[in-house]
Design a protein around this nucleic acid. Structure first.
Lengths: 202, 202
DNA sequence: CGTGAGTTTGACCAGATGGTCAAATCAAGA
DNA sequence: TCTTGATTTGACCATCTGGTCAAACTCACG
């Protein structure tokens, strides 16, 4: 294990390669289904070499998840209470859908973890995530009080956005199996936009 | 392996116990994360005894999935083109949400499989499922042509219903971590109902 | 160019896991 | 009750997998 000095050029390169490979493998097979050998091979390292940079499989997984959680929640974090309500929400939705298109591995990484009861990130959910969602729910409620958007259960409104947008990344195979050649996001973007315009108009 | 005569009393009982246990274990840990020992223990059998009824872990999983696929798709199958459009759709949604509440294990079983690329049911998706969805999409389009419901992309309308309802089963931990004591379905049912009333009204 | 820290690897280990098998036990009909 | 097929099990095996370790190699820098 490298000392805790400033990371060398090689350390930076290899750590990045490992996390990139781990994202591929964990998102495609889940924690249990992923093997250290697989990750090492995909990162272009031998298994002992990989374990020189991370002490265990679990450590790689944890590093990945906590490193990506901020990225994942950034769009919600950026929802601005001083912005124009309908515009803010629609642009949040647009960003979330874009993330499903551009970062499907990240989406599936979290989906894998959540579907199996989130054994490794349960704390982050009930603390950080809950706090963020509660705060943004308050913003939504405020907008509803002002009559700027229709009155709805704010938490379920957020859940609905997550469900609708992440569905296209998490269940990509199913969506594509049904749509055939048609690009999923081509149709999804206007559909979801229309849906929330109708739903949120007071 | 039992001969292919009529199943004995014991065979019926044990097969059922195995599938029930397998549903628990596979839905909670995914295919790779589940172990035969775990399933056997939960079914009250020894591992060799379990393998007397099913030739392999894979065979149990396949039997489960194909046995449950019909159950899972029954609500969509029952969508009646001769019924009153808005009523039919809202009752389909209600049934789907009820299934998320009452059969969360089944939902997560499929979610686990789909999120990992559906390696074991890809054929069923592109054949049976696609056919069913295309057929029902045609029904929806017909209703739109008649002006009975708002014009929308029928496939994405169906996806949205799946996403919104199954979210509550698949990502149960996350939903509960955020809602705290509040019953998820208590709020979800009216929210989703309102959403589709607004969306579908022409 | 020498040296010490940083990096890489082949060989290895222990435990978990899917699966087999022959022998033992049980159940039900004649 | 006796027989025969159904059921159950303990012991066992091969493979996979996460992880270790000492030795070898490479790199940066004085």
């Amino acid at each position: 294990m490298p000392k805790d000095r400033a990371p060398t050029r090689i350390q930076k390169k290899n750590r990045a390669a490992i996390l990139e490979a781990a994202l591929n493998v964990f998102s495609a097979h889940g924690f249990r289904g992923a093997t250290v050998d697989q990750i090492a091979a995909e990162a272009g390292l031998s298994k002992p070499n990989l374990l020189y940079y991370f002490p265990s499989k679990e450590a790689i997984h944890t590093a990945l998840l906590s490193g990506l959680l901020d990225t994942w929640l950034a769009p919600l974090h950026d929802l601005d209470e001083n912005g124009e309500p309908m515009e803010e929400i629609l642009s949040y939705i647009k960003r979330k859908l874009q993330m499903s298109r551009e970062l499907p591995r990240e989406s599936r990484l979290f989906a894998n973890e959540l579907v199996q009861g989130a054994p490794r990130i349960h704390d982050a959910l009930s603390n950080d995530l809950k706090a963020l969602v509660d705060q943004k729910a308050a913003v939504l409620t405020h907008w509803m009080d002002q009559g700027k958007i229709a009155r709805l259960h704010p938490h379920h409104l957020i859940f609905s956005i997550w469900a609708l947008t992440q569905h296209y990344a998490d269940f990509d195979v199913q969506v594509r199996a049904i749509l055939g050649d048609e690009d999923p996001f081509e149709g999804a973007a206007p559909f979801i936009d229309t849906l929330y315009r109708k739903l949120l108009t007071p």
